[in-house]
């Protein structure tokens, strides 16, 4: 049975993975993340009215005549449509990596915890668990702020998803979709990018949550498709603590989750080289992200989700201000 905390928790506490793992069912977990985060924010960027006037634009066929500014029509004999701030909210599409490599995790959880995948018979908190928790929380926050949120879970393509919407009950659809298990295949990045672009022709903020363990060139190629269409992208890299530190003292046969050949490894002897390779990979990813003016955040699945969500919200505000300015 899930354990529900009986005493109020600080935001940092219940945004920690151990806390998240105890928050079952899944919806409750996501709400707590978002509420905890909101409570931690002192000033909400969405305190004002959603109906404040922002600008005019020319009427096009299909526009509701309710928004036609008749006063302007009377003065200039032109049909202009009033635009309000509410209508400048973001289109947010969260893309969650559901490939086999996301099934990796080393944070042990107790029986009954909310981990989604058992690895070798043990309940563990996987990178996918962490990614879905982040995605659910982001979705919740975005919907609360009247953004339109879409979701896609990808691997060798976007396998499942939820169309973009801003309705109040849309969040439950997002959560149901996130509850699906990851698949056993690897990520086909370019295909996923093409699908995402085709499904979202308008300016969209893509939040891609993945471990990004593919070759940087492949990822760069995929991101270029998004960047060239003018989309904003935030890359959320989720890595397990063991992957980040490689602080193991075992001689083992490492088996790839995506079908890679087995490797005999003495961890002590290659730890330095592994960490160097990881650093190089992350540097490459950072360089790619900067080249497209994208943001990159590295996220440890054993650590709190709070900072990254705060970062995301700040990023969202920056995008909004940039658009309003024009």
């Amino acid at each position: 049975m899930a354990e529900t905390p009986t005493t109020p928790l600080r935001a940092e506490q219940y945004l920690a993975p151990e806390t998240l793992a105890q928050l079952a069912p899944f919806e409750l977990r996501a709400k707590r993340i978002a509420e905890g985060l909101m409570n931690g924010m002192h000033v909400s960027p969405r305190k004002g009215s959603a109906t404040d006037f922002a600008s005019h634009r020319q009427y096009v066929s299909g526009d509701s005549i309710r928004h036609v500014d008749w006063k302007v029509f009377a003065r200039s004999d032109k049909l202009q449509v009033k635009q309000f701030q509410q209508e400048t909210n973001l289109n947010v599409v969260v893309l969650v990596d559901g490939s086999a490599s996301m099934q990796f995790g080393t944070l042990k959880t107790k029986s009954g915890w909310g981990g989604t995948k058992a690895q070798r018979g043990r309940i563990v908190w996987t990178k996918y668990d962490h990614a879905t928790a982040i995605a659910a929380a982001i979705s919740f926050l975005a919907l609360r702020q009247r953004d339109q949120v879409g979701l896609g879970i990808f691997a060798d393509g976007i396998r499942s998803g939820v169309r973009r919407s801003g309705s109040n009950d849309h969040w439950r659809s997002v959560v149901r979709c996130l509850a699906a298990d990851p698949v056993e295949s690897a990520v086909a990045w370019e295909r996923v990018a093409d699908q995402a672009v085709s499904q979202n022709p308008h300016h969209t903020l893509f939040i891609i949550i993945s471990d990004f363990l593919a070759p940087p060139a492949v990822i760069q190629s995929a991101l270029s498709r998004l960047g060239h269409r003018g989309h904003d992208v935030i890359l959320v890299t989720v890595l397990d603590h063991a992957e980040r530190t490689f602080n193991m003292d075992v001689d083992a046969a490492f088996v790839g989750l995506e079908g890679e050949p087995q490797l005999e490894v003495e961890t002590r002897k290659i730890r330095a080289a592994y960490l160097a390779e990881l650093e190089k990979h992350l540097n490459d990813m950072d360089r790619i992200a900067r080249s497209f003016r994208f943001d990159l955040e590295v996220f440890d699945s054993h650590e709190s989700v709070g900072p990254i969500l705060s970062s995301l919200l700040a990023r969202r505000e920056a995008i909004l201000r940039r658009r309003i300015r024009g």
């Binding site: 990796f104 690895q119 990178k127 397990d240 992957e243 083992a252 046969a253 290659i270 080289a273």
Partner: peptide, 22 residues
């Protein structure tokens, strides 16, 4: 030579490059 226990791992590409490097 010891028979190693299998361990599942995600970052196999990094591991492989580290092995080649060392």
């Amino acid at each position: 030579r010891r028979k190693h226990q299998p361990v599942e791992w995600a970052a196999m590409a990094l591991l492989k490059r580290a092995l080649e490097r060392t």
